[in-house]
Design a protein around this nucleic acid. Structure first.
Lengths: 147, 147
DNA sequence: CATCAAGTGAGACTGTGTATCATCTTGCCA
DNA sequence: TGGCAAGATGATACACAGTCTCACTTGATG
């Protein structure tokens, strides 16, 4: 519930109105486990009896992204997914098995990006690092499964 | 032309048949300046008088990606674009102004990814780093324009 | 509690990518 | 050189993501 409140208040702080559909969708997204697509949000909302138009789902996702409460991830499959996360700059590690995600601080990457800028001569304004693999418990489960 | 031949031979090496449409599309892609979307490839092919079905464009892009001759990039706009590039693991820096790209060796990132794996406990199988900014000549052009 | 800008839902619409299937082409081998 | 089977093609239908419009509703503010 706290997570949902954070997402809602991010909307508020960014100057968006707090409407019924937005609160409901923000809650759904905050409670999602792992990255979610627009379609999954719509489906989950429907399952919970929340009646919202498809356009509103897209608009709310857009608003939340602008507000910094969620962030887009491009899955290896090509799908656009989102993750609820802190507004500070960071990156995501996604478990390909269970969808669980972890946030990673920017840290050492900044230096690397600077170095790349120097080497290529580009002025780098934006970067995105996405990591995919298996989370600790899925690694353990696979290990046990195998012997 | 050499670039185009590289792309075509990558198809051959991966066991795909070298058909007329594939040669033509591979040439179009190899000669593209900057990242290209499927729609742009189809449009450019059409402009050159190459008559191919839309499905063939998607299939050829897919084949070239599997063959390692092109690589997918997710633009900040959300579009899926591709770049012709060497098959070795590396990353791309894309100029948001002119579309020019540069390749960056993996280098120091490997250590960083390993460190992230250790810190999060994830077994990281795959990573993607994309950088966006301005290429040297666009930086220069902007500087001159301003004063 | 009245006002109005902002938000909503329905549905049409655009664009991307996939599936199907009859027809055609390539690579191979005699 | 010609025939053949596997693989590729193109047309078209389809599934789905995302946008746009517009009449109607709702939230924040005084």
């Amino acid at each position: 519930m706290t997570e949902a409140m954070l997402v809602v208040s991010a909307l508020d702080a960014a100057g968006y109105r707090l409407t019924g559909p937005r609160r409901a969708l923000a809650t759904v997204m905050a409670e999602m486990d792992g990255p979610f697509t627009a379609a999954r949000v719509a489906g989950e909302a429907h399952d919970r009896g929340i009646r919202v138009g498809r356009a509103t789902v897209f608009r709310t996702i857009d608003a939340l992204e602008r507000a910094g409460a969620i962030e887009r991830i491009d899955l290896p499959s090509g799908e656009h997914a989102y993750v609820a996360c802190a507004p500070a700059h960071h990156h995501h590690v996604v478990c390909s098995a269970c969808g669980h995600t972890a946030e990673v601080a920017d840290g050492a990457l900044v230096a690397l990006v600077t170095e790349i800028g120097r080497r290529t001569g580009f002025r780098i304004d934006e970067h995105r690092l996405e990591l995919f693999g298996r989370c600790p418990s899925c690694v353990r489960a696979a290990g046990e499964g195998r012997g």
